[in-house]
Design a protein around this nucleic acid. Structure first.
Length: 430
RNA sequence: GGAGAGAUCGCAUAGUGGUCUAGUGCGCACGCUUGGAAAGCGUGUGUACCGAAAGGUACCGAGGGUUCGAAUCCCUCUCUCUCCGCCA
């Protein structure tokens, strides 16, 4: 959520931000109407409650006969307070629904634009591999090398599910383990996180905004238990410190969470139907930071650079794009995507999304910190939360397979992964 | 899945309808004391909202209910612990 005071004092600023994100700025006016009604009713109600508290003290001291007399008057007051509370509950509910839908504001440097087509390439790193032959895409490679079975997956689970097979199973583990080891060495705390979460956790992370997201969103729902399959470990990592007051000295808190991720991908059929690029279930190591607002820019750059480091270790060429306003999610203020060159698909494909959610998630989740020393001692402030992909598999396997293929149909394993795989190439079995 | 016990202001506990805007101990902060420290003594010590301030309001796991009044009584839920069952 945004700071309600910011919305009250600068409604135009907020509207401009929503517009830049190609959202609906009229939300602000609807919210402010509810907000002022809520505020004045709350004051009215609190006055009545003060009166009741006072009367209650007198009642305690009164004689039994006097109590009988007082009871009638107080009943009226009590009923009025009850009515106030009913109306307040209703107002609180609409207030929250609207607040959740008002997105985080994009930062100044976020480019204008409606969709990912208007994202801006900010840098390109590494050399695309040169082939003396026409490179195959990963689906063909997997078929030839017996690394994948999507046909039987469709029988068992449906379209866009998969069985990884043989060396590819090991390669996936190797890549995830490389990410964990690298981040552990950088001081991240490793967490293997719950995949099923409550609706509340989804709202907290900003992955649900409107009530209809519970039924029609991108998350699978486990109906009987009212739980959702999270689309990323970010949900569990953001909620990890919900309701806590952290101390400044322990910030930044950095976590690397590993989880299975589930996405319904509704409305994406027809796009990237081939192979392992877009699937319903995948495994991901996600970075997550709780940082001081002062350090937010630096921290965001750090998370981005760590995915870059990982790609460089694998020798994969990539470009970094700065996402435009329309391509930002509800809680995100700024986001970089990293797109890795996939030789067989002959395109750059997104392998990382590094987001700064500033204090938006933290405000919803009530995650604060207290400054140590200085004249600000004692005040609590909201932390900033940031997240970024380390590696998501199987997607990251695509450039590894496609970029390292050889003319004889075999695939070379990147040097850095060999200690994890125990083999240095994948070639056709006899 | 079944039976039972619990959830109180950092921690530990008290509190079974009104003086609880929650007591006490520990911890922590500041002060006194001291050559310095410890001990001792004193003061303070949750979060949020409204307010210029004085002050007010809410929160005793969450949500409902009973009542003039709920930490306390009733209902539902969540979580924790113990036992039984089942099980990677």
């Amino acid at each position: 959520m945004l700071d309600i005071k910011l919305i009250r004092d600068n409604p135009d600023l907020v509207k401009a931000g929503i517009t830049k994100k190609h959202g609906d700025p009229s939300l602000v006016d609807r919210l402010l109407t509810v907000d002022s009604e809520r505020k004045s009713l709350r004051q009215e109600s609190e006055t009545r409650q003060a009166k009741q508290n006072q009367a209650s003290n007198e009642m305690a001291k009164a004689t039994p006969e006097d109590r009988e007399k007082l009871r009638g008057d107080l009943k009226e007051l009590s009923d009025a307070i009850k009515a106030d509370k009913d109306r307040l509950t209703a107002l609180d509910e609409s207030w929250t629904v609207l607040m959740r839908q008002i997105p985080n504001l994009p930062t100044e440097d976020v480019p204008e634009g409606a969709s990912d087509k208007e994202n801006v390439v900010v840098k390109t790193v590494g050399e695309k591999p040169a082939f003396a032959f026409t490179p195959k895409d990963h689906e063909v490679l997997c078929e030839e090398l017996d690394l994948l079975d999507t046909k039987r997956a469709a029988k068992v689970s449906g379209a866009k599910f998969y069985y990884l097979k043989n060396e590819l199973v090991i390669l996936e583990q190797a890549v995830l383990r490389l990410a964990l080891d690298t981040l552990k060495a950088k001081g991240f705390t490793l967490l293997s996180v719950p995949d099923l979460v409550r609706a509340e956790a989804m709202y907290g992370a900003g992955h649900f905004a409107a009530p209809e997201d519970e039924q029609d969103g991108d998350a699978y729902k486990v109906d009987r238990d009212g739980l959702y399959l999270a689309g990323t470990a970010e949900v569990a990592l953001a909620n990890y410190h919900a309701g806590e007051i952290l101390s400044e000295s322990e910030l930044p808190l950095r976590y690397a969470g590993i989880s299975a991720c589930f996405r319904r991908e509704a409305g994406t059929y027809g796009k990237e139907t081939r192979g392992l690029y877009r699937v319903h279930q995948f495994n991901k190591v996600e970075m997550f930071s709780y940082a001081r607002p002062d350090d937010t820019v630096k921290e965001h750059e750090l998370l981005l650079s760590l995915h870059e480091d990982l790609l460089q270790k694998l020798g994969l060429p990539y470009q970094v794009v700065l996402n435009c306003g329309g391509d930002l999610g509800t809680p995100q203020a700024k986001k970089w995507d990293v797109e890795t060159w996939m030789a067989g698909m002959d395109k750059y494909g997104e392998t990382c999304s590094a987001s700064n959610d500033t204090d938006y998630q933290a405000r919803t989740l009530g995650i604060r910190f207290r400054r140590v020393g200085g004249d600000q001692t004692g005040e609590t402030e909201f932390v900033h939360t940031l997240n970024s992909t380390a590696f998501a598999s199987p997607r990251i396997l695509i450039p590894i397979l496609e970029n390292n293929q050889r003319e004889d149909g075999s695939i070379a394993i990147p040097e850095v992964l060999i200690p994890y795989t125990g083999f240095s190439e994948i070639r056709k079995r006899d």
